[in-house]
Structure formats: C-alpha cells, structure tokens
C-alpha cells in the first residue's frame, strides 16, 4: 500500500500528540512522586560531610546527644531554624580534631583552612516554596508551651514530627519519614484544631 501525503501528515500529527501527552504524564509523575520536583529531594552532597548521628545521636549509640536547638539556635526564636556559623562549630572543634582519618580530614576542611575561617557553603536540603510562610518558632512554641502533656514536648521531639529522626541519619534526607507536602501540614493542623485557612500559611 502506498502512503498518501495525507496519511503521512496524520501519522506525524498523531505521533506528535502522543509525545506531548507522554511528556505531560511524565512531568506529572515526577512532580507528584519527587519532593521537591525533579529529584531535588535527595540529599545533596555537602561541602563538609556532617554526620548528625555523631552530633545529635543518643550517647548509648555513640553519639554526643547534643540538642537540636544548640546548633539550630534560631528555631525557638524566629522563622528560620538557621544553620550555625563556623564559629559555633569551632566552639567544640577548636579542641576536637576527630578520631578517624575521615573525620580528621572533614574537620580540617574548616578548622585548618589556609585562608582563615571561612563560612561553609552548605547545600540546602529543605526548600520552602516562595508562596509558603513557615515559622519554626510558632510551631515549636505550640508543642512545647501548651497546657496538655502532648503539647509539653522537648524541642527535639517537636523537630522529629516533621523532619523525622534526624539523629539517626548520616545524611539528612527530606523525604525520610515525611513528604513535607501540603497534605502533611494540613493533617497536623486538623489533628491539633488549628486554623486551616489558606492565608495562615500561604502569602
């Protein structure tokens, strides 16, 4: 059978349509199952391999048991939990050089920097969209200074409600435990009978 020009055109249009629909489906699939979209949700490589297991882990498991708010100081004061300044790291690491060879190498990266003490360019793990207002302080206050026992938690317990058990993560992964999508926020807001009006979080 000979292909007429019309049939070829129709076939090409059909193929193009299929490609478009396929592309849309792939985009929807990726944006639904990855958080944030396009694979940014995986733990990015950090300039200094910081193990939360050693710093925040329980003492009986070989950790230091440091409280979350000791380093993330702003978490009980403002919107951002904040990453500490290098000076805060040196508060301990002035004396602590590390036990293993890898630990020594990682600590030396910022402690014995030939250019002096330089800020560490951490890669962002949790990325809040532009249209969301999230205040760490308000959430920590809600769960630590309430009237009922379930609202008189330790700060670390409040952190793990959304961030998961960070103390057991060598690399902090946003998707571990919670997806941190809007549904996660709403579930908790409904559970605790706090407002769910759009303008409470969206700006």
């Amino acid at each position: 059978m000979r292909l007429s020009a019309k049939m070829v055109t129709l076939g090409l249009v059909g193929l193009l349509g299929l490609a478009v629909v396929g592309f849309v489906l792939v985009v929807l699939f990726i944006s639904w199952f990855s958080n944030p979209p396009f694979g940014l949700g995986n733990a990015p490589p950090q300039p200094v391999a910081f193990p939360h297991t050693i710093h925040a882990g329980a003492p009986e498991e070989g950790g230091m048991g440091i409280q979350c708010e000791f380093c993330h100081r702003n978490v009980t004061r403002g919107a951002e939990a904040t990453v500490p300044a290098v000076e805060q790291c040196l508060f301990c690491h002035e004396q602590v050089a590390g036990r293993t060879a890898t630990a020594k190498a990682e600590i030396a990266k910022f402690r014995d920097n030939p250019d002096g003490i330089q800020p560490i360019n951490w890669e962002r793990v949790h990325r809040l969209p532009d249209h969301v207002r999230f205040i760490h302080e308000a959430h920590v206050r809600f769960f630590t200074q309430g009237d009922t026992p379930d609202r008189q938690l330790e700060v670390a317990q409040v952190c793990s409600k959304c961030h998961g058990d960070v103390a057991s993560m060598t690399e902090v992964q946003p998707m571990k435990g919670q997806s941190l999508k809007m549904g996660t926020c709403l579930d908790c807001h409904r559970e605790n009978s706090v407002p769910t009006d759009c303008t409470v979080c969206h700006k």
Binding site: P129, H131, D197, C198, T199, H202
Partner: peptide
C-alpha cells in the same frame, strides 16, 4: 479566590 472568616477576599496564587 474565596472569602475567608476575617471578611477578606483571598487570592491563592499557587492555586
């Protein structure tokens, strides 16, 4: 766009 309890007409940009 919807009306909230505070009497405001709200525009939800991401929606």
């Amino acid at each position: 766009t919807y009306h909230n309890d505070e009497g405001l007409n709200v525009q939800v940009y991401n929606r």
